[in-house]
């Protein structure tokens, strides 16, 4: 039985036995190339569920929207499951609230190409789950040769400036991110306003840098924001860099291990702390 058939069958059973109030997964949209999130609550609707390379969104984000309805089942790939781990660690959800239908993922395809975040994915399989739908997936992640570190600060600034200059501040990146859940985002604070709201490079850069820093040790590099950006901003550039710094300095990977807290939420005596000397 393939993954999708198994998914539909299990969704049906979970709903029938009333173990969950709904199943969070994907369904086909009106267009090829991108699927839509589905919250299935009726057994007769389980056949709408799909799982393929068009499943672009991170379902952990939608988990926050439906969590108050009761226990829900959620389809989770490696990245989604890591986001769930971060949400658990940050006490946004409880483990008992979710039933995780794990699924191995070969990567999201965008316009005929593997999404940039998926190419170097180290976690195609969920790190936590209640059951696996089908076999685990194994592939050799592409090594992303990143020239960024070899550039001078000025050169880096130029690259980032060119990227954020296109930003229209629609906040799609924030809205699709499961770990951007603040009730009032820093850019929306108005008394006092913390960030300039115009679209000049300076204001845009403040937004993007602050976003990246808030994501430090929490971003699981799922690439949902990168794919969501209507202006094609290379958001993975920011995410990758932040994750790399956290990995190198704290030896941690966001959401990879449920018992390993996010880097910036715990203090360890051996943490690098030259900056407070």
């Amino acid at each position: 039985m393939d993954k999708v058939a198994r998914l539909r069958q299990r969704a049906k059973e979970l709903l029938e036995k009333q173990e969950v109030v709904g199943v969070l997964g994907y369904r086909a949209s009106s267009r090829p190339g991108i699927s839509q999130v589905a919250f299935i609550t009726k057994t007769e609707e389980v056949d709408r569920l799909i799982f393929d390379a068009t499943c672009s969104q991170n379902l952990a984000n939608y988990l926050l929207k439906v969590k108050d309805k009761g226990k829900v089942a959620v389809v989770a790939r490696g990245c989604d499951s890591r986001s769930i781990v971060v949400l658990l660690q940050e006490k946004q959800i409880e483990r008992g609230q979710v039933y995780i239908l794990g699924v191995g993922c070969e990567g999201v395809i965008v316009q005929g190409e593997k999404s940039v975040s998926c190419r170097s994915c180290q976690y195609p399989n969920p790190v936590i789950y209640d059951e696996m739908l089908g076999e685990e997936v194994h592939f050799e992640p592409e090594k992303v040769e990143d020239e960024f570190d070899r550039l001078t600060p000025d050169e880096r600034w130029q690259i980032l400036s060119a990227e954020v200059a296109r930003c229209i501040r629609c906040y799609a990146c924030r809205q699709v991110c499961p770990n951007c859940y603040c009730p009032v985002c820093f850019v929306d604070a108005s008394m006092p306003a913390l960030v300039g709201k115009t679209h000049n490079v300076s204001d845009n850069m403040v937004f993007h840098i602050m976003r990246a820093l808030h994501m430090a040790g929490r971003c699981v590099e799922c690439g949902a924001c990168h794919r969501a950006c209507p202006m094609g901003i290379d958001l993975m550039r920011f995410n990758r860099q932040v994750a790399k710094i956290v990995r190198e300095r704290f030896g941690l990977v966001a959401g990879a291990k449920p018992d390993e807290m996010p880097a910036l939420t715990v203090f360890k005596p051996e943490d690098p702390q030259e900056f407070i000397r």
């Binding site: 839509q36 999130v37 919250f39 984000n61 939608y62 929207k65 439906v66 229209i168 501040r169 629609c170 906040y171 799609a172 924030r174 809205q175 699709v176 969501a228 209507p230």
Partner: peptide
């Protein structure tokens, strides 16, 4: 609107 994440992409563009 379950799917909608309430970003401004549709309105801004």
């Amino acid at each position: 609107t379950l799917e909608c994440v309430n970003c401004g992409a549709c309105t801004f563009l």
